[in-house]
Design a protein around this nucleic acid. Sequence first.
DNA 1: CTTAGAACGTTGCACGCGCATCTACACAGC
DNA 2: GCTGTGTAGATGCGCGTGCAACGTTCTAAG
Lengths: 163, 163
Amino acid sequence: MTVTVTAGESREAISSEELTVWRMLQRAQVRITRVLETDLLVEHDLALASYDVLTQLSESPDRRLRMNDLADRVLLSRSGLTRLVDRLQRDGLVEREACASDARGLFAVLTDDGAVRLAEATPTYLRGIRAHFLDVLDAGELRQCAAMLNKLFPAPAGEELPA
Amino acid sequence: MTVTVTAGESREAISSEELTVWRMLQRAQVRITRVLETDLLVEHDLALASYDVLTQLSESPDRRLRMNDLADRVLLSRSGLTRLVDRLQRDGLVEREACASDARGLFAVLTDDGAVRLAEATPTYLRGIRAHFLDVLDAGELRQCAAMLNKLFPAPAGEELPA
DNA sequence: CTTAGAACGTTGCACGCGCATCTACACAGC
DNA sequence: GCTGTGTAGATGCGCGTGCAACGTTCTAAG
Protein backbone atom coordinates (compact mmCIF):
# COMPACT_ATOMS: atom_id res chain seq x y z
CA MET A 1 0.00 0.00 0.00
CA THR A 2 1.51 3.27 -1.11
CA VAL A 3 0.50 6.87 -0.90
CA THR A 4 -0.90 8.37 -4.04
CA VAL A 5 1.40 11.08 -5.21
CA THR A 6 -0.66 13.24 -7.51
CA ALA A 7 2.18 15.05 -9.16
CA GLY A 8 4.87 12.52 -9.97
CA GLU A 9 8.18 14.03 -9.04
CA SER A 10 9.63 11.76 -6.43
CA ARG A 11 11.75 8.97 -7.77
CA GLU A 12 10.10 6.37 -5.67
CA ALA A 13 6.75 6.31 -3.93
CA ILE A 14 6.73 6.61 -0.19
CA SER A 15 4.82 3.88 1.57
CA SER A 16 2.25 4.90 4.10
CA GLU A 17 4.26 3.04 6.73
CA GLU A 18 7.22 5.26 6.07
CA LEU A 19 5.03 8.32 6.21
CA THR A 20 3.53 7.17 9.49
CA VAL A 21 6.94 6.71 11.02
CA TRP A 22 7.79 10.25 10.12
CA ARG A 23 4.56 11.60 11.54
CA MET A 24 4.99 9.68 14.76
CA LEU A 25 8.49 11.00 15.09
CA GLN A 26 7.20 14.53 14.82
CA ARG A 27 4.46 13.96 17.33
CA ALA A 28 6.74 12.26 19.80
CA GLN A 29 9.38 14.93 19.66
CA VAL A 30 6.94 17.83 19.95
CA ARG A 31 5.04 16.27 22.82
CA ILE A 32 8.08 15.28 24.83
CA THR A 33 9.57 18.71 24.34
CA ARG A 34 6.33 20.32 25.43
CA VAL A 35 6.14 18.30 28.63
CA LEU A 36 9.75 19.09 29.42
CA GLU A 37 9.22 22.76 28.78
CA THR A 38 6.15 23.09 30.98
CA ASP A 39 7.78 21.10 33.77
CA LEU A 40 10.77 23.41 33.78
CA LEU A 41 8.52 26.44 33.52
CA VAL A 42 6.26 25.41 36.36
CA GLU A 43 8.93 24.19 38.76
CA HIS A 44 11.74 26.60 37.98
CA ASP A 45 10.32 29.36 35.78
CA LEU A 46 12.88 28.45 33.16
CA ALA A 47 12.19 27.94 29.47
CA LEU A 48 13.80 25.02 27.70
CA ALA A 49 15.89 27.31 25.52
CA SER A 50 17.14 29.12 28.61
CA TYR A 51 18.03 25.83 30.22
CA ASP A 52 19.97 24.83 27.13
CA VAL A 53 21.92 28.06 27.15
CA LEU A 54 22.82 27.71 30.82
CA THR A 55 23.87 24.12 30.23
CA GLN A 56 26.10 24.97 27.32
CA LEU A 57 27.78 27.73 29.28
CA SER A 58 28.30 25.54 32.31
CA GLU A 59 30.00 22.93 30.18
CA SER A 60 32.36 25.42 28.57
CA PRO A 61 35.76 26.48 29.85
CA ASP A 62 35.48 29.43 32.24
CA ARG A 63 31.71 29.13 31.95
CA ARG A 64 31.83 31.38 28.93
CA LEU A 65 31.14 31.22 25.24
CA ARG A 66 31.11 33.67 22.36
CA MET A 67 27.61 34.58 21.31
CA ASN A 68 28.20 33.08 17.92
CA ASP A 69 29.45 29.76 19.21
CA LEU A 70 26.58 29.66 21.62
CA ALA A 71 24.09 30.22 18.83
CA ASP A 72 25.52 27.24 16.98
CA ARG A 73 25.10 24.92 19.95
CA VAL A 74 21.66 26.07 20.87
CA LEU A 75 18.96 25.62 18.28
CA LEU A 76 18.33 29.33 17.89
CA SER A 77 18.93 32.11 15.41
CA ARG A 78 21.46 34.80 16.22
CA SER A 79 18.82 37.38 16.90
CA GLY A 80 16.91 34.93 19.01
CA LEU A 81 19.98 34.30 21.08
CA THR A 82 20.65 38.03 21.52
CA ARG A 83 17.22 38.45 23.01
CA LEU A 84 17.36 35.32 25.10
CA VAL A 85 20.66 36.41 26.62
CA ASP A 86 19.07 39.81 27.23
CA ARG A 87 16.45 38.13 29.38
CA LEU A 88 18.91 35.89 31.15
CA GLN A 89 21.07 38.89 31.88
CA ARG A 90 18.10 40.83 33.19
CA ASP A 91 17.42 37.90 35.53
CA GLY A 92 21.05 37.84 36.61
CA LEU A 93 21.77 34.34 35.35
CA VAL A 94 24.22 35.40 32.67
CA GLU A 95 26.50 38.33 32.05
CA ARG A 96 28.02 39.80 28.94
CA GLU A 97 31.74 40.40 28.83
CA ALA A 98 33.82 42.04 26.16
CA CYS A 99 36.31 39.95 24.23
CA ALA A 100 39.88 41.17 24.51
CA SER A 101 41.14 39.71 21.25
CA ASP A 102 38.20 40.80 19.11
CA ALA A 103 36.40 44.01 19.88
CA ARG A 104 33.35 42.84 17.95
CA GLY A 105 32.95 39.79 20.10
CA LEU A 106 31.09 39.29 23.32
CA PHE A 107 31.20 36.49 25.79
CA ALA A 108 28.13 35.22 27.53
CA VAL A 109 29.24 34.21 31.00
CA LEU A 110 27.33 32.08 33.45
CA THR A 111 26.97 33.83 36.81
CA ASP A 112 26.97 32.08 40.17
CA ASP A 113 23.24 32.64 40.39
CA GLY A 114 22.90 31.10 36.97
CA ALA A 115 24.87 28.06 38.03
CA VAL A 116 22.67 27.63 41.09
CA ARG A 117 19.53 27.98 39.06
CA LEU A 118 20.81 25.46 36.56
CA ALA A 119 21.68 23.00 39.32
CA GLU A 120 18.19 23.35 40.76
CA ALA A 121 16.52 22.78 37.43
CA THR A 122 18.66 19.90 36.26
CA PRO A 123 16.95 17.17 38.28
CA THR A 124 13.62 18.21 36.77
CA TYR A 125 15.11 18.10 33.33
CA LEU A 126 16.77 14.73 33.77
CA ARG A 127 13.71 13.26 35.40
CA GLY A 128 11.65 14.37 32.39
CA ILE A 129 14.00 12.84 29.89
CA ARG A 130 14.18 9.65 31.87
CA ALA A 131 10.45 9.31 32.29
CA HIS A 132 9.42 10.17 28.77
CA PHE A 133 12.33 8.87 26.78
CA LEU A 134 15.12 6.87 28.33
CA ASP A 135 13.06 4.66 30.61
CA VAL A 136 10.78 3.67 27.77
CA LEU A 137 13.59 2.23 25.71
CA ASP A 138 15.96 -0.57 26.63
CA ALA A 139 19.71 -0.42 26.21
CA GLY A 140 19.64 -2.04 22.78
CA GLU A 141 17.06 0.32 21.44
CA LEU A 142 19.00 3.26 22.75
CA ARG A 143 22.05 2.03 20.87
CA GLN A 144 20.03 1.63 17.69
CA CYS A 145 18.65 5.08 18.19
CA ALA A 146 22.11 6.53 18.57
CA ALA A 147 23.29 4.77 15.44
CA MET A 148 20.40 6.18 13.41
CA LEU A 149 20.93 9.67 14.74
CA ASN A 150 24.58 9.49 13.82
CA LYS A 151 23.55 8.73 10.26
CA LEU A 152 20.90 11.42 10.19
CA PHE A 153 23.16 14.11 11.48
CA PRO A 154 26.86 13.49 11.48
CA ALA A 155 27.65 15.13 14.77
CA PRO A 156 29.59 18.40 14.79
CA ALA A 157 33.04 17.01 15.48
CA GLY A 158 33.73 15.93 19.03
CA GLU A 159 30.20 14.99 19.88
CA GLU A 160 29.99 11.69 18.09
CA LEU A 161 28.88 8.66 19.96
CA PRO A 162 31.15 5.63 19.99
CA ALA A 163 29.73 2.92 17.78
CA MET B 1 31.32 8.14 32.96
CA THR B 2 28.20 9.73 34.27
CA VAL B 3 26.85 13.22 34.48
CA THR B 4 27.16 14.87 37.84
CA VAL B 5 23.74 15.55 39.19
CA THR B 6 24.20 18.19 41.84
CA ALA B 7 20.88 17.73 43.55
CA GLY B 8 20.23 14.03 43.94
CA GLU B 9 16.65 13.44 42.99
CA SER B 10 16.75 11.08 40.06
CA ARG B 11 16.70 7.44 41.00
CA GLU B 12 19.54 6.55 38.72
CA ALA B 13 22.23 8.68 37.15
CA ILE B 14 21.95 9.38 33.47
CA SER B 15 25.02 8.49 31.50
CA SER B 16 26.42 11.09 29.18
CA GLU B 17 25.78 8.72 26.30
CA GLU B 18 22.10 8.72 27.10
CA LEU B 19 22.08 12.47 27.38
CA THR B 20 23.85 12.79 24.07
CA VAL B 21 21.28 10.60 22.37
CA TRP B 22 18.57 12.87 23.63
CA ARG B 23 20.35 15.99 22.50
CA MET B 24 20.98 14.56 19.07
CA LEU B 25 17.36 13.61 18.77
CA GLN B 26 16.36 17.16 19.49
CA ARG B 27 18.83 18.58 17.03
CA ALA B 28 17.88 16.17 14.29
CA GLN B 29 14.19 16.75 14.63
CA VAL B 30 14.46 20.53 14.76
CA ARG B 31 16.81 20.73 11.83
CA ILE B 32 14.86 18.40 9.58
CA THR B 33 11.67 20.24 10.39
CA ARG B 34 13.33 23.54 9.63
CA VAL B 35 14.56 22.40 6.24
CA LEU B 36 11.14 21.03 5.39
CA GLU B 37 9.46 24.23 6.45
CA THR B 38 11.69 26.52 4.43
CA ASP B 39 11.44 24.29 1.36
CA LEU B 40 7.66 24.42 1.50
CA LEU B 41 7.74 28.14 2.17
CA VAL B 42 10.09 28.94 -0.68
CA GLU B 43 8.56 26.68 -3.29
CA HIS B 44 4.89 26.89 -2.37
CA ASP B 45 4.50 29.70 0.16
CA LEU B 46 3.04 27.19 2.58
CA ALA B 47 4.01 26.78 6.21
CA LEU B 48 4.46 23.31 7.61
CA ALA B 49 1.50 23.68 9.93
CA SER B 50 -0.67 24.74 7.01
CA TYR B 51 0.47 21.75 5.02
CA ASP B 52 -0.44 19.48 7.90
CA VAL B 53 -3.90 20.95 8.15
CA LEU B 54 -4.55 20.55 4.44
CA THR B 55 -3.28 16.98 4.59
CA GLN B 56 -5.49 16.04 7.50
CA LEU B 57 -8.53 17.50 5.79
CA SER B 58 -7.78 15.78 2.50
CA GLU B 59 -7.57 12.45 4.28
CA SER B 60 -10.86 12.91 6.08
CA PRO B 61 -14.30 11.91 4.78
CA ASP B 62 -15.87 14.71 2.76
CA ARG B 63 -12.63 16.63 3.14
CA ARG B 64 -13.93 18.06 6.39
CA LEU B 65 -13.17 17.91 10.07
CA ARG B 66 -14.48 19.55 13.18
CA MET B 67 -12.13 22.23 14.48
CA ASN B 68 -11.62 20.31 17.66
CA ASP B 69 -10.73 17.05 15.97
CA LEU B 70 -8.42 18.92 13.67
CA ALA B 71 -6.64 20.53 16.61
CA ASP B 72 -6.01 17.08 18.05
CA ARG B 73 -4.41 15.79 14.89
CA VAL B 74 -2.32 18.83 14.21
CA LEU B 75 0.21 19.76 16.86
CA LEU B 76 -1.44 23.05 17.68
CA SER B 77 -3.51 24.65 20.41
CA ARG B 78 -7.16 25.44 19.76
CA SER B 79 -6.54 29.15 19.48
CA GLY B 80 -3.59 28.52 17.22
CA LEU B 81 -5.78 26.44 14.96
CA THR B 82 -8.49 29.09 14.88
CA ARG B 83 -6.00 31.62 13.60
CA LEU B 84 -4.36 29.24 11.16
CA VAL B 85 -7.72 28.35 9.66
CA ASP B 86 -8.44 32.08 9.48
CA ARG B 87 -5.42 32.49 7.27
CA LEU B 88 -6.15 29.44 5.17
CA GLN B 89 -9.68 30.69 4.67
CA ARG B 90 -8.43 34.12 3.69
CA ASP B 91 -6.26 32.42 1.08
CA GLY B 92 -9.20 30.36 -0.13
CA LEU B 93 -7.70 26.98 0.71
CA VAL B 94 -10.22 26.12 3.38
CA GLU B 95 -13.75 27.08 4.22
CA ARG B 96 -15.75 27.03 7.42
CA GLU B 97 -19.10 25.34 7.45
CA ALA B 98 -21.68 25.13 10.20
CA CYS B 99 -22.41 21.78 11.77
CA ALA B 100 -26.04 20.72 11.49
CA SER B 101 -26.13 18.45 14.50
CA ASP B 102 -24.30 20.78 16.87
CA ALA B 103 -24.70 24.53 16.54
CA ARG B 104 -21.52 25.09 18.47
CA GLY B 105 -19.47 23.12 16.02
CA LEU B 106 -17.75 24.19 12.85
CA PHE B 107 -16.29 22.16 10.07
CA ALA B 108 -13.12 23.14 8.33
CA VAL B 109 -13.55 22.06 4.73
CA LEU B 110 -10.83 21.73 2.13
CA THR B 111 -11.67 23.71 -0.99
CA ASP B 112 -10.75 22.68 -4.52
CA ASP B 113 -8.07 25.32 -4.54
CA GLY B 114 -6.79 23.90 -1.29
CA ALA B 115 -6.65 20.43 -2.78
CA VAL B 116 -4.71 21.71 -5.76
CA ARG B 117 -2.28 23.59 -3.59
CA LEU B 118 -1.78 20.54 -1.44
CA ALA B 119 -1.15 18.36 -4.47
CA GLU B 120 1.42 20.82 -5.73
CA ALA B 121 3.24 20.96 -2.43
CA THR B 122 3.21 17.26 -1.66
CA PRO B 123 6.12 16.30 -3.91
CA THR B 124 8.28 18.89 -2.17
CA TYR B 125 7.24 17.56 1.19
CA LEU B 126 7.84 13.94 0.32
CA ARG B 127 11.13 14.70 -1.34
CA GLY B 128 12.25 16.45 1.83
CA ILE B 129 11.31 13.57 4.08
CA ARG B 130 12.97 11.12 1.73
CA ALA B 131 16.18 13.07 1.43
CA HIS B 132 16.63 13.97 5.06
CA PHE B 133 15.09 11.00 6.78
CA LEU B 134 13.93 7.93 4.91
CA ASP B 135 16.80 7.61 2.47
CA VAL B 136 19.33 7.82 5.25
CA LEU B 137 17.95 4.78 7.03
CA ASP B 138 17.60 1.27 5.70
CA ALA B 139 14.48 -0.83 6.02
CA GLY B 140 15.60 -2.47 9.22
CA GLU B 141 16.41 0.78 10.93
CA LEU B 142 13.07 2.17 9.91
CA ARG B 143 11.36 -0.81 11.53
CA GLN B 144 13.36 -0.32 14.69
CA CYS B 145 12.47 3.33 14.66
CA ALA B 146 8.79 2.52 14.31
CA ALA B 147 8.96 0.09 17.20
CA MET B 148 10.56 2.66 19.46
CA LEU B 149 8.07 5.32 18.52
CA ASN B 150 5.24 2.95 19.28
CA LYS B 151 6.65 2.54 22.75
CA LEU B 152 7.25 6.24 23.22
CA PHE B 153 3.79 7.26 22.19
CA PRO B 154 1.15 4.60 21.93
CA ALA B 155 -0.57 5.82 18.79
CA PRO B 156 -4.06 7.31 19.07
CA ALA B 157 -6.08 4.27 18.06
CA GLY B 158 -6.10 3.45 14.38
CA GLU B 159 -2.69 4.80 13.58
CA GLU B 160 -0.58 2.03 15.00
CA LEU B 161 2.00 0.45 12.84
CA PRO B 162 1.89 -3.30 12.37
CA ALA B 163 4.65 -4.96 14.35
C1' DC C 1 -38.96 24.82 32.93
C1' DT C 2 -34.96 26.13 35.09
C1' DT C 3 -30.42 25.94 36.22
C1' DA C 4 -25.58 24.24 36.68
C1' DG C 5 -21.93 22.60 34.36
C1' DA C 6 -19.35 21.17 30.48
C1' DA C 7 -17.90 21.54 25.61
C1' DC C 8 -16.87 24.26 21.11
C1' DG C 9 -14.75 27.86 19.16
C1' DT C 10 -13.07 32.78 19.20
C1' DT C 11 -10.59 36.84 20.98
C1' DG C 12 -7.34 40.06 23.92
C1' DC C 13 -2.98 39.95 25.32
C1' DA C 14 1.87 39.34 25.90
C1' DC C 15 5.69 36.95 24.40
C1' DG C 16 9.26 34.69 21.67
C1' DC C 17 10.99 33.94 17.05
C1' DG C 18 13.19 34.68 12.49
C1' DC C 19 14.24 37.73 8.60
C1' DA C 20 16.17 41.71 6.88
C1' DT C 21 18.79 45.49 8.11
C1' DC C 22 22.18 48.17 10.55
C1' DT C 23 26.49 49.45 13.09
C1' DA C 24 31.00 48.41 14.58
C1' DC C 25 35.06 46.07 13.89
C1' DA C 26 38.54 42.81 11.39
C1' DC C 27 41.47 41.71 7.79
C1' DA C 28 43.11 41.66 3.07
C1' DG C 29 45.07 44.14 -0.94
C1' DC C 30 46.90 48.11 -2.78
C1' DG D 1 47.26 55.14 5.13
C1' DC D 2 42.88 53.95 2.57
C1' DT D 3 39.26 50.89 0.67
C1' DG D 4 36.44 46.81 0.03
C1' DT D 5 34.76 42.54 1.70
C1' DG D 6 33.45 39.68 5.49
C1' DT D 7 32.11 38.80 10.32
C1' DA D 8 29.98 39.67 15.30
C1' DG D 9 26.05 41.28 17.46
C1' DA D 10 22.06 44.20 18.01
C1' DT D 11 17.56 46.07 16.46
C1' DG D 12 12.90 47.16 13.84
C1' DC D 13 9.35 44.73 12.30
C1' DG D 14 5.78 41.43 11.39
C1' DC D 15 4.07 37.03 12.46
C1' DG D 16 2.58 32.93 14.85
C1' DT D 17 1.82 30.93 19.43
C1' DG D 18 -0.23 29.75 23.94
C1' DC D 19 -2.84 31.18 28.05
C1' DA D 20 -6.75 33.04 30.11
C1' DA D 21 -11.15 34.82 29.59
C1' DC D 22 -15.47 35.18 26.99
C1' DG D 23 -19.99 34.11 24.48
C1' DT D 24 -22.69 30.47 22.85
C1' DT D 25 -24.77 26.06 22.86
C1' DC D 26 -25.45 21.40 24.55
C1' DT D 27 -26.71 18.20 28.33
C1' DA D 28 -28.20 16.52 32.68
C1' DA D 29 -30.31 17.14 37.25
C1' DG D 30 -33.83 18.99 40.02
